[in-house]
Amino acid sequence: YVPGAADTPEAEAMRTYFKAKKWEEDLFTPDGFNAAQMVVEAVRAGGAKGDTDAMVKALEGFSFSGVKGPNTVRAADHALLQPTFQAQFTAEGAPRVARTFPAEQVAPAETRIG
């Protein structure tokens, strides 16, 4: 990920929030945004009792729109499948997106849990 790479509503919301805080996006910013979305989904499912089994079940196969685009938590091994960007540097040294790979094309090999 490079700053400004995505034009999703989530990316725009993140940029607006960061601008207000005078923060800058970086390579890991979308991961934090995705993690927050997954925490909210897990807490919704687990409720006030903190039912971790319900939380895990809610996230297995969970699909949502994130900063980089569509995301899915693969049920079999809990890998987060998401688009990936190939960056290229301009003559001035600024990164730009050269190519976007869909999640299906860059997904890691599936491994079973347990």
Results as ranks from 00 to 15, higher is better:
residue 9 P to F: 12
residue 97 V to C: 08
residue 8 T to F: 05
residue 106 V to W: 03
residue 34 N to W: 00
residue 70 P to D: 15
residue 88 Q to K: 05
residue 44 R to G: 01
residue 63 S to T: 09
residue 49 K to R: 12
residue 16 T to S: 12
residue 83 P to S: 09
residue 4 G to A: 04
residue 92 E to M: 13
residue 109 A to W: 05
residue 1 Y to P: 07
residue 39 V to L: 13
residue 75 A to G: 03
residue 21 K to H: 06
residue 11 A to K: 15
residue 62 F to E: 04
residue 9 P to H: 11
residue 112 R to A: 13
residue 70 P to W: 13
residue 48 A to R: 08
residue 114 G to F: 10
residue 64 F to G: 05
residue 77 D to I: 00
residue 28 F to E: 00
residue 38 M to H: 02
residue 9 P to T: 10
residue 40 V to D: 05
residue 99 R to G: 07
residue 64 F to Q: 03
residue 75 A to C: 08
residue 41 E to F: 02
residue 13 A to L: 14
residue 110 E to Q: 11
residue 57 K to M: 05
residue 98 A to S: 13
residue 69 G to L: 07
residue 109 A to L: 08
residue 81 L to M: 11
residue 33 F to M: 13
residue 99 R to D: 12
residue 61 G to K: 01
residue 79 A to H: 09
residue 65 S to W: 01
residue 36 A to C: 10
residue 99 R to F: 14
residue 24 E to R: 14
residue 50 G to Q: 06
residue 33 F to Q: 11
residue 102 P to M: 11
residue 2 V to M: 09
residue 76 A to R: 10
residue 72 T to V: 14
residue 49 K to N: 12
residue 67 V to S: 06
residue 60 E to S: 12
residue 87 A to H: 04
residue 12 E to D: 15
residue 74 R to T: 04
residue 39 V to W: 05
residue 40 V to W: 06
residue 47 G to D: 04
residue 8 T to E: 08
residue 103 A to H: 06
residue 72 T to D: 14
residue 24 E to C: 06
residue 45 A to E: 01
residue 18 F to L: 15
residue 41 E to C: 03
residue 1 Y to E: 13
residue 9 P to C: 14
residue 9 P to W: 12
residue 61 G to R: 01
residue 66 G to R: 01
residue 62 F to Q: 06
residue 88 Q to T: 02
residue 84 T to Q: 15
residue 76 A to H: 08
residue 38 M to T: 02
residue 84 T to H: 14
residue 105 Q to Y: 04
residue 3 P to F: 06
residue 27 L to C: 00
residue 63 S to E: 14
residue 27 L to G: 00
residue 12 E to L: 11
residue 1 Y to H: 15
residue 103 A to M: 08
residue 67 V to N: 04
residue 110 E to W: 03
residue 78 H to M: 13
residue 50 G to H: 07
residue 99 R to V: 11
residue 9 P to G: 12
residue 58 A to W: 00
residue 41 E to T: 02
residue 2 V to N: 03
residue 113 I to N: 07
residue 30 P to G: 00
residue 6 A to F: 15
residue 40 V to K: 07
residue 42 A to C: 11
residue 19 K to C: 05
residue 27 L to N: 02
residue 92 E to C: 05
residue 24 E to M: 13
residue 96 R to S: 04
residue 36 A to V: 07
residue 33 F to R: 09
residue 36 A to E: 11
residue 38 M to C: 05
residue 112 R to T: 12
residue 46 G to D: 02
residue 49 K to V: 15
residue 31 D to I: 01
residue 16 T to D: 14
residue 103 A to E: 08
residue 3 P to L: 07
residue 23 W to R: 09
residue 2 V to L: 14
residue 42 A to G: 08
residue 78 H to R: 12
residue 45 A to R: 01
residue 20 A to C: 11
